[in-house]
């Protein structure tokens, strides 16, 4: 009986948090729209969540591409199909790894920082102080971060895919001597702009939305103590990573069929 009650509690808590986060989302979107006239605020946030995440994205993208090159070549060469290496690497990156990995890295690097920052602003009464200065934190604090997240994640995903393709080329051509022309042509023949590139971009926009939303909500909703903020930061990474992976499954099924 007890476990049933606990299950019910978990369910209720989940639904109430979901509801709270939806209300928050509406306020945040409204704040995002109102903050647009002062775009310098968005630019500041683009710096702290975009530029500072760029390096980790570029480096991981390169390594992911190189690993794909190695693994792909070693498998394809069994079927004498190493001419398709470029296609394999590009499709993996553009459709899946680019959007998903960059969203996960963004959650770990920028999402957790967003949560901690906003949680600490709450804990040190900065948000209350803004309200008392007749400044709406949704417009001044949450809005610009939301817009910046929406802009940054798709760009980061594109960077990761592009660098990954180059990494695959580095291994394919440099290590295994795949002909450059073959590498790029097989890619260009097989990768479709609408089906693959555009769908990948749509995915990364959705992921950016999810991660930024989760991170801002967790920060805004954090219990204003150091323990509460640290918990909220953990929750941001866990929740947004799960949401990205789950969302990826749904989006993939919708875009590429299979369900």
């Amino acid at each position: 009986m007890l476990w049933l009650q606990q299950l019910g509690q978990i369910g209720l808590r989940f639904v109430s948090r979901l509801g709270m986060s939806l209300v928050f989302l509406i306020h945040a979107l409204y704040g995002a729209v109102r903050c647009l006239p002062r775009f310098s605020l968005v630019i500041q946030q683009l710096f702290s969540i975009g530029v500072l995440t760029m390096l980790i994205i570029l480096v991981s993208g390169l390594f992911v591409g190189m690993v794909l090159g190695l693994q792909g070549y070693n498998q394809l060469v069994n079927f004498s199909a190493e001419s398709s290496l470029g296609l394999v690497v590009a499709l993996f990156l553009v459709r899946e790894l680019g959007p998903v990995l960059s969203a996960l890295l963004f959650a770990g690097r920028a999402g957790s920082a967003l949560t901690a920052e906003i949680g600490l602003m709450k804990a040190t009464e900065q948000l209350s102080a803004m309200e008392m200065m007749a400044v709406d934190p949704m417009k001044r604090v949450i809005g610009p971060r939301f817009v910046a997240g929406l802009i940054a994640v798709p760009l980061l995903a594109a960077m990761m895919s592009a660098v990954g393709v180059l990494g695959g080329y580095l291994i394919g051509h440099g290590q295994f001597g795949v002909d450059p022309g073959v590498y790029w042509t097989s890619m260009q023949n097989g990768v479709d702009f609408v089906d693959d590139i555009l769908n990948g971009v749509i995915k990364s926009v959705v992921f950016g939305f999810i991660v930024t939303w989760v991170a801002l909500f967790e920060g805004y909703d954090a219990i204003p103590t150091s323990e509460g903020v640290s918990r909220a930061t953990t929750r941001t990474v866990v929740t947004s990573s799960l949401a990205v992976l789950g969302g990826d499954f749904i989006l993939t099924a919708l875009m590429f069929g299979g369900l």
Partner: peptide
């Protein structure tokens, strides 16, 4: 209304 009042918070609440 709030523009007519100032408030000093315990933690100072300066924007860091």
């Amino acid at each position: 209304m709030r523009r007519k009042m100032g408030m000093l918070f315990q933690s100072s609440a300066l924007l860091t």
